[in-house]
């Protein structure tokens, strides 16, 4: 509770840079990673469609805010997420017949189809010249949420609620079903676990969470987006975040997202501070990229199960040393 208050109190001390460029994208990336982790880490269904589902959430929420302005913001967000979840169920149908790399290929098709769809049909973006969408006024209960602090609190509240629900869900019957499917789906179906329903449910919940994250990405973070903001690179970024953070772990999402968002920025600041002016800026940039890649490799060698496992191992070691 104290910590929640501290997180909510951040806008009082942090400046716009921290909110807009670091914390908001970190929180949203964590949420997206959580969505994919439910599907991939818990239910074992690999997907490269995260970017596509983010765009469904963003475009659906945009249209709800635009065409049904009387709906309160959280309802529009949730409905946008539900629409994305339903699209996720359709995209998940192939998972009933295929798995592994074949499923990855079919979700890849979903990703490209969705990106094409929003670029192609003007209706989704209200016939804007550049088929980009931008947030109508963000307000809830009469409070204007368009300031950096307002957008941060909106993001934080959403992430906390969704994470709480997801954390309960993975410990419920549903979560156990998913893990049974992940570990061995034949055995799961033999002992009477509804495999097909479980898979589709995983696609629904995962896409719902990713859809909400997509809407936040569009409106609370960037302000204006087009379908390209949710391209395949985004899907890969989310997948890397959960691989680095730890599959099948809720806090791994936050660790992975932190790694993906903070480390490049940190390297950039360090590079600028240490070598600024002395080294060619282009070379410096390339060096940072290489270093980031090397760090990923190093972490995965140290702990293939991700930062979450690394952290809990360190924690156990520390605890045992204290107890001794």
């Amino acid at each position: 509770m104290v910590l929640l208050a501290a997180l909510a109190g951040i806008p009082l001390v942090a400046n716009d840079y921290w909110l807009n460029a670091v914390l908001i994208p970190f929180l949203i990336m964590s949420l997206t990673a959580l969505g994919l982790n439910l599907l991939m880490g818990y239910a074992g269904q690999a997907s490269l469609g995260s970017g596509g589902f983010m765009s469904v959430g963003a475009y659906a929420t945009y249209n709800l805010l635009l065409r049904l302005p009387e709906l309160p913001l959280p309802v529009s967000l949730l409905l946008g997420g539900i629409i994305s979840g339903l699209v996720g169920v359709v995209a998940g149908l192939p998972s009933l017949r295929i798995k592994g790399f074949y499923l990855v290929a079919s979700t890849l098709a979903t990703q490209f189809l969705l990106e094409w769809l929003f670029n192609q049909y003007g209706w989704f973006s209200n016939y804007s010249t550049s088929s980009s969408i931008s947030a109508p006024r963000l307000a809830f209960l009469g409070h204007d949420l368009s300031s950096p602090a307002g957008r941060y609190l909106l993001t934080l509240a959403t992430v906390v609620v969704v994470t709480a629900v997801a954390a309960r869900l993975v410990r419920s019957q549903t979560g156990r079903t998913w893990m049974a499917i992940r570990d061995m789906d034949t055995a799961a179906s033999v002992i009477g676990i509804p495999v097909s329903a479980g898979k589709l449910k995983a696609f629904f919940v995962s896409s719902l969470v990713i859809g909400i994250a997509g809407a936040l990405w569009a409106f609370a973070y960037l302000g204006t987006v087009d379908a390209r903001s949710f391209n395949l690179d985004r899907s890969f970024q989310v997948m890397f975040a959960i691989i680095i953070g730890g599959m099948g772990s809720v806090r791994g999402n936050f660790l992975g997202a932190a790694f993906m968002i903070f480390v490049p920025i940190l390297l950039d600041h360090l590079g600028g501070g240490v070598f600024g002016g002395a080294v060619d800026p282009g070379q410096l940039e390339n060096f940072q990229k290489a270093l980031f890649g090397a760090l990923i490799v190093w972490f995965l060698i140290k702990e293939p199960r991700g930062l979450a496992a690394l952290l809990s191992r360190a924690w156990t070691r520390l605890a045992s040393r204290i107890n001794r």
Partner: peptide, 11 residues
């Protein structure tokens, strides 16, 4: 969840 938050905030 509380513990997770604490760890996250530490990071």
């Amino acid at each position: 969840l509380w513990k997770q938050k604490r760890i996250m905030s530490k990071a």
